[in-house]
């Protein structure tokens, strides 16, 4: 029951500048977000573009500094510890687009060796480790000599996973790891992630806009909307009885393939024969009478 990662009141403001570089305002990309991830579990952050989910991942990885708030890893405050090596060992990240997260001019083997070299593994062991890692992600060892463009999308993402695992991290951040892949390839990559999680005792922070995938992978889910976590809880209960309007809207928007799934999607009131946007829905709920009453029926 120990928390490997704790996020406490994390906030990130981005300045809005005019044409001369003067600050004319701020955008709250991440707004007072707190959550904790238990060791060995999968925490899902669900949200659309602009929800701040990627900014949170970047702050945990030390690629961006928070405006305020703390990030605790294994009880140690690592806020602002950017790129430090001891820290790099504990948290790694798998990026969304395997096409752009692998250097097109370097072979698979060279890409996987980057973290090995950076963390001081002896050069003589690199080759051996690379083939072990490739085997771990179920790729043949001779892939080490290939270039990314010779690989399929699913294979590239496996390489990215192998690279992230090279330093034996405890927490893996998965930023939409399968959104660029075909559905059958996605299923195989998810299989791999689940298997690896079990074998290596990994903890995952899973970031995605795909609620169907989230439902089947995450133990706990947090729904992000405009930088805030609007609803959080065990995945099954959030999906079965969503409390927040935005969660309901998200669920109602998922294209599904069976009647059972359709039955569990919330009914959203229509405005002019159109699905309302989240802002409209929340604004309507908050004050205006006619539509919100229909919601309550």
């Amino acid at each position: 029951m120990t928390n490997i990662l704790e996020i406490v009141r994390l906030t990130k403001l981005f300045p809005v500048r005019n044409g001369f570089g003067g600050k004319i305002g701020e955008v709250r990309a991440v707004d007072d977000v707190s959550f904790a991830i238990e060791k060995g579990k999968v925490y899902g952050l669900a949200g659309e573009s602009g929800s701040g989910k990627s900014t949170i991942a970047r702050m945990i990885m030390g690629l961006a500094g928070p405006t305020s708030g703390d990030i605790l890893l294994d009880g140690h405050n690592i806020t602002g510890e950017t790129g430090s090596r001891a820290y790099g060992r504990k948290v790694q990240m798998v990026f969304q687009n395997p096409g752009s997260s692998l250097n097109p001019r370097r072979t698979v083997g060279q890409s996987i060796e980057v973290p090995l070299a950076a963390h001081g593994a002896p050069r003589t062991e690199h080759k051996q480790r690379v083939s072990e890692l490739l085997e771990m992600v179920q790729l043949p060892a001779d892939f080490a000599s290939r270039f990314p463009h010779e690989l399929s999308g699913g294979q590239k993402q496996r390489v990215a996973i192998a690279r992230a695992l090279a330093v034996a991290p405890q927490l893996l951040i998965l930023d939409e790891p399968t959104s660029a892949l075909d559905v059958s390839v996605q299923a195989r990559v998810m299989d791999l992630l689940v298997d690896l999680g079990r074998q290596l005792g990994l903890t995952y922070l899973f970031i995605s806009h795909d609620l169907s995938l989230m439902r089947n992978f995450a133990d706990t889910v947090g729904v992000l909307y405009l930088g805030k976590i609007v609803e959080t809880g065990p995945t099954a209960s959030v999906f079965e009885s969503p409390q927040h309007d935005y969660t309901r809207l998200l669920l109602a928007s998922v294209p599904v393939i069976s009647a059972e799934e359709e039955a569990m999607r919330p009914r959203i009131p229509l405005i002019d024969g159109e699905i309302p946007t989240a802002e409209q829905l929340i604004a309507l709920r908050g004050g205006a009478a006619p539509v919100s009453q229909r919601t309550e029926k």
């Binding site: 299923a187 998810m190 079990r198 439902r215 089947n216 992978f217 998922v254 069976s258 059972e260 569990m264």
Partner: peptide
Amino acid sequence: PRLTGGTSFG
């Protein structure tokens, strides 16, 4: 993957 859950990966 199904919104109702029950798709088991791995």
